[in-house]
Design a protein around this nucleic acid. Structure first.
Lengths: 198, 198, 198, 198
DNA sequence: AATGAATGAGGCTTCATTCAT
DNA sequence: GATGAATGAAGCCTCATTCAT
């Protein structure tokens, strides 16, 4: 009963995802993945160059998509004020619903890249994303309001928004649940942000 | 035991704090600290039993104080509604101002215990603190409002509050700055929370 | 787990036995065994969990068999007087001949567990065995004779018997030689014991 | 309150004896002795060159005396048959009573040199002593009796005699007790030896 | 003499990765 | 492709001993 190559590759990826999730990149052992995938540890190297690359392969799709999302988000939002009545809808659509089954199909990978990537090239990604969002928020502020204090609040707001979305992803239950939670969560923050954009 | 040279002990602690901050507990090397402190690695063991204990010695004071703070906070808040006009003041006092020079003198240690403690006994501390705050928020909600959705928002709110405070600490500039930032930040969240407590 | 190359495993065991014998557990270096077995030190850990476990694996079979022997010896001797004419025969059979090739095949392991086990879980085994034999001897004494002096002689006798057997094992030459030596040796002690059991 | 030098030296020796006894040479830590002697570890090196020398200083007196004893014993026994009626008396006198307060005053040092000297130059001393006694016993045997079997029994007998005496020393209670125990113990062995010397 | 401080050699063990079949 | 076997680089920690005052 020879197992097809692609099947093995997928077994390994699946196992790797589990182990990376459970232990994080650094503590995850090739040996553990091998056991889960019912493969020898050395055989993993026939499919993936290294532990680091294995992680990258798993995580790269969401990495790219998020980058595209950011791209798209930038274009979509250009010229809009953050508190426009359409914003919540827009953001939610973009992040939750608009991404289609993105979260559903990728919530594990999302957690990997954001929560478990210490020791990899993606270590800084969450930070970058926050920075991106922060700039976005700041650029939506009227210049007259962009004092140091507000600026920092925008930083924290961005941090909170990303962390909050992650927390939702960590507790993923269903698409509908995510959509609702994101909705509530965004509203929560809109209220906090409102004072800066009224 | 003997009285060890305080200067060297402090040199080592300082070096350890730096390395722990930069690398986190697990990746921090005794060797690096030794170099920074201009001491042999083995000499560190004349001052601290082990890497783990060294971390504990550095971090324990803030660990204890935070636990006391939580104690105090519980007593202070008993019988109060979360949105009482006095709350912001109270919370700010407790967390920022009320703690005196706590943050000023301990912000590095705070970051260590919350951000860099993986692999130590303090690994779960942030999570516990969030849980604590979450319960606090939930218990302030009228029963009629405590549905699943609100409950989860409280969870995220707690997460955001702690993470936000940490972010403030990460960017520590001065006591006054912290006080202001906390103030603004709390207001921000009060607005989001308000709808649940009006 | 995987099936490891038996040959190497045996090579390592052999090397380990030699080094443990030569240096004793504590001074024995994994490095030395590695050299003797022509293997890298780290490779030993593909076969044995730790230095301690390696020792245990080598020594445990004889540990178990000796415990069984003690069990059997207790049952055999129940209700017999120690100086019965059948005793020498019985004891010799049990210890030397009755054990078949036990000593022949295990004399090195016996020396390890009795002489070289300092720092391991087997450290106390010889002492326990002596205690066991001592109790056995004492319980064979008529109560009227069990004064403090005789009691202590029984203790020394037990010590001597075990040490003597060990010395025979240390000088192992052949099964027949062991059998003869044990026989003579036991006779020797029977004479000394006789005065207490006439 | 300056402590006199000799007093300190004695404190250290006393402490060292305790620690060596408890742990054996190799496991004994200079630090432990220092604590017991209420001295700094480094100060020990003002009195003793090294751990090894410290052990030697403690143990050398008994080492010398035992060598003298052996000398004397050789001369005393020259021309006597081992089973001469006077032997027991002679041996006992030599070893127990005849040595005056030797055992009483030196039983700890005796245990050190015989039981706790692993890792030192005295490691082989017990073995040598056994060898000495063995030769002595053998030389007392009529040539006609000195077959291989008897020869080995003499070896074990020597081993047993030394080990037995040591066991008595390990349980030291009083001079009288030692004398009695040695007496009984020698008688015990005389009976075993008798068959070879009748 | 006394001591606190400092050090270096050394040992066990882990684990990603490579080798050989 | 698959696997068992092998390896080397690291890192933590211990302890006798030496140094500096």
């Amino acid at each position: 009963m020879q197992i097809l190559k692609d099947e093995v590759r997928e077994e390994i990826e699946k196992a790797a995802i589990e182990v990376f999730l459970e232990k994080g990149f650094e503590r995850a052992l090739m040996q553990n993945m091998a056991e889960k995938a019912k493969v020898s540890a050395s055989n993993i190297y026939n499919y993936f160059e290294s532990k680091e690359k294995l992680f990258a392969v798993i995580v790269d799709p969401v990495y790219c998509q998020i980058n595209q999302l950011m791209q798209g988000f930038m274009e979509y939002e250009t010229g809009r004020s953050f508190t426009d009545s359409g914003f919540v809808e827009g953001f939610v659509q973009t992040v939750a619903k608009g991404t289609g089954r993105f979260i559903k199909e990728n919530h594990l990978r999302l957690l990997l890249i954001f929560d478990k990537s210490r020791g990899t090239q993606y270590e800084q990604f969450k930070e970058n994303l926050i920075e991106f969002l922060e700039q976005h928020l700041k650029s939506s502020l009227k210049d007259s309001r962009l004092n140091e204090s507000a600026s920092f609040i925008m930083h924290i707001s961005a941090t909170n928004l990303i962390e909050g979305l992650l927390e939702i992803i960590r507790h993923y239950k269903s698409d509908a649940w995510v959509e609702n939670s994101v909705n509530d969560f965004i509203k929560y923050h809109i209220r906090g942000l409102a004072q800066f954009f009224d």
